[in-house]
Amino acid sequence: MKMKIAFASEENKGLESMVAQHFGRCPYYIFVDVEGNLVKTIETKENPYFNSHEPGVVPQFIAKENANVIIAGGMGPRAIEWFEKLGVQPITGISGKVKDALDKYLGGKLSGAGPCDEHS
């Protein structure tokens, strides 16, 4: 099964980047294409809405990149709703390095999204 997983990131270090705690205000997104459990490509993109964003623009950006999943530390309830409407599975409550979160996700150990405290 092929899929693209997006990670909100604080750094431009690929899989070594730290997962950002606020998905919409992170400076980068790491996009990882996987086939089964094999990483095929890794691409880092700057957040085009880093300095200012309106509700829905970041979820639409992630969806246009053909991501199936977005993984972040935190996310507001409206963003979660946007992702669900766009067919992108949001996963929140994640910290640490992107590579560790990727391993946990591929191992079936990550799922679910809830609004972070500052947004609920």
Rank of each mutant, 00 (worst) to 15 (best):
V58F: 12
E118C: 14
A79D: 10
F31N: 04
H53Y: 13
A63I: 00
I71K: 09
N51T: 12
G96I: 11
L38A: 10
K40Q: 13
S52H: 14
K97D: 05
K45T: 03
G108Q: 11
I80G: 02
E10M: 15
K40R: 14
K104C: 04
V69C: 05
A63G: 08
K104N: 12
H22P: 00
I80K: 01
G114N: 12
S52P: 00
V32H: 05
G108S: 10
N12I: 02
E81D: 13
K13W: 06
R25Q: 08
G74I: 08
L106H: 07
L38P: 00
G108H: 08
K45Y: 06
S120G: 13
N51M: 12
G24M: 01
T92A: 09
P115S: 14
T92Q: 05
D100F: 12
K104L: 14
S9L: 06
V34W: 04
A67W: 11
P55W: 01
K97W: 00
I80M: 11
A72E: 04
V57S: 04
P55D: 03
D117I: 13
G96M: 07
E65R: 10
F23M: 12
D100L: 10
L102I: 02
H53M: 01
N12V: 00
K2M: 13
A67H: 11
E118S: 14
G14C: 02
Y28I: 02
A79R: 02
V69L: 03
M3H: 12
G76F: 01
I91L: 01
I91Y: 01
N51L: 14
P48C: 07
L110C: 11
G108P: 10
N47K: 08
V39G: 08
P115D: 12
G74P: 02
G36F: 01
L102H: 12
E46S: 13
K64W: 04
G76H: 05
I80H: 06
H53C: 10
L110Y: 11
D33P: 00
G36W: 10
K109H: 10
S95Q: 11
K13E: 14
P55F: 01
M1G: 13
